[in-house]
């Protein structure tokens, strides 16, 4: 991943000060530091290179034009992520919405006392071979695309962009318990989608 805001805090702080003071050179450096993160997040939301390019340009333009108005109430990176999310959602506005995720559908089948009753297949050790498989990547991307927005954004910021739970809470302005429960749901959903893929994958291999 391009820029790690936690590691390069001092550099970031200086650049942000320069940006607030209207120094053009800091804009270019911040743009270079952040563009990969902006593009990556936007691509994972829109799954479209043209849209992601537009979003990245819009975000950079906002940094350039509004950088001096950044007040420092939250971390600069939180501000950048927030603008990126808003710009990506503008692109998505015309696309369709999905239903809510129910936790019961994502857990294995449980009996009345809360114990598992189906035999689960452990595919976790067979993932390396499948990893670079184009089809596996496609299945994963499709599963993420199917996540409802609320869960998807938490998963992308926390697990993919690697922000801390606290930072995600700052970017999205929602509580930490809500972040945790959405993240858990997203992970359960992805697990379920991958489970059915790998179970089929194994069955297909055994038939060969």
């Amino acid at each position: 991943m391009g820029f790690d805001p936690t590691k390069d805090k001092a550099i970031e702080e200086q650049l942000v000060k320069d940006l607030q003071a209207g120094k053009v050179s800091s804009f270019e450096q911040l743009a270079n530091l952040y563009q990969k993160n902006i593009y990556n997040l936007s691509f994972n939301l829109t799954r479209n290179a043209t849209d992601s390019q537009d979003v990245t340009q819009e975000v950079l333009l906002t940094l350039f034009k509004k950088g001096h108005t950044f007040q420092g109430k939250s971390a600069f990176s939180s501000w950048v992520y927030r603008i990126t999310l808003n710009a990506s959602y503008m692109k998505l506005r015309t696309r369709k919405k999905e239903p809510n995720l129910s936790i019961e559908d994502l857990l294995p089948s449980l009996n009345g006392a809360g114990f598992q009753q189906e035999k689960l297949q452990d595919w976790s050790e067979n993932t390396e071979a499948a990893f670079f498989d184009k089809e596996t990547r496609r299945v994963i991307q499709k599963a993420v695309d199917l996540l409802p927005d609320k869960e998807k954004v938490v998963f992308l910021l926390r697990d993919v962009e690697g922000l801390s739970t606290e930072k995600v809470s700052e970017v999205l302005e929602i509580t930490i318990p809500a972040i945790k429960s959405r993240l858990h749901r997203a992970r359960l959903f992805l697990r379920k989608k991958l489970a059915s893929y790998f179970e089929d994958y194994k069955a297909r291999k055994e038939r060969k």
């Binding site: 990556n40 598992q116 976790s124 993919v160």
Partner: peptide
Amino acid sequence: VFLNTYKAAIHMSQTTLKSN
């Protein structure tokens, strides 16, 4: 098994989605 596959799903999704 559930824990293993939960972790594997996180790891695989992470790796796939970081590389745009």
